[in-house]
């Protein structure tokens, strides 16, 4: 499986944010997108996710077979907000996303165990702390298997232990032949990742 991005440029409101971004990721490879605020990291992530149209360039997902014919079907998108409803319990939130995204991978309980938050299963999501909310959002990545993880500032709100746990999850995902594109300000603990410096 390969993610190939060629001469991609993105714009917002007619203004070019970035241009000429090219990279290729194979199975087990990661790309860290870094750069100052406003460099276009989030815009790049949203263009790859298909949430914004690309001004020029192409994004292809090759070798996904029948299960993952295109980029959108192969990716999990973890945005800057957690995509969970404050009024629903943690379990209801996770069950909803699991039923939406195709074949199951982890059970909801197991995914909550993974981020060590099983005891919060029946609390409304809104009662959780910022870091706990983020960890539940990360648990969503495990509910359905998608080879490509698009993580936009995944560590925001996480403490040191949870950041280390996230690094462990990411290494494991790469070890299983997954791919990660992550935008970040902090080192994520992925040693042999490619980096893409935006802006500057």
């Amino acid at each position: 499986m390969r993610l190939v991005v060629e001469t991609l440029s993105g714009e917002r409101g007619g203004e070019t944010i970035f241009a000429g971004v090219s990279f290729a990721l194979g199975a087990g490879e990661a790309l860290l997108v870094t750069g100052p605020n406003g460099a276009g990291k989030t815009t790049l992530m949203r263009v790859i996710a298909g949430l914004l149209p690309a001004a020029t360039g192409t994004i292809r997902f090759e070798g996904g077979g029948e299960a993952f014919p295109d980029v959108a079907s192969a990716l999990h998108f973890l945005g800057p907000v957690n995509a969970m409803k404050a009024a629903l319990t943690v379990r209801e939130n996770l069950e909803f996303w699991q039923s939406l995204a195709g074949p199951r991978h982890f059970q909801v309980c197991d995914a909550m165990d993974l981020v060590d938050l099983r005891r919060t299963a029946d609390l409304p999501f809104g009662y959780l702390s910022t870091g706990q909310k983020r960890r539940i959002a990360i648990a969503r990545l495990y509910l359905n298997y998608r080879p490509l993880w698009l993580l936009d500032e995944p560590t925001s709100g996480l403490d040191a232990d949870s950041t280390a746990a996230l690094a462990h999850f990411m290494r494991e995902h790469l070890g299983d032949g997954g791919m990660i594109v992550a935008s970040t300000h902090l080192p994520l603990g992925l040693d042999d990742a490619q980096t893409l410096e935006m802006g500057g």
Partner: peptide, 16 residues
């Protein structure tokens, strides 16, 4: 849209 769920819905939109 505010809690990000719309983004995830849109990402899953082709199969969905």
């Amino acid at each position: 849209r505010e809690d990000g769920a719309l983004d995830v819905l849109l990402v899953h939109a082709p199969g969905f």
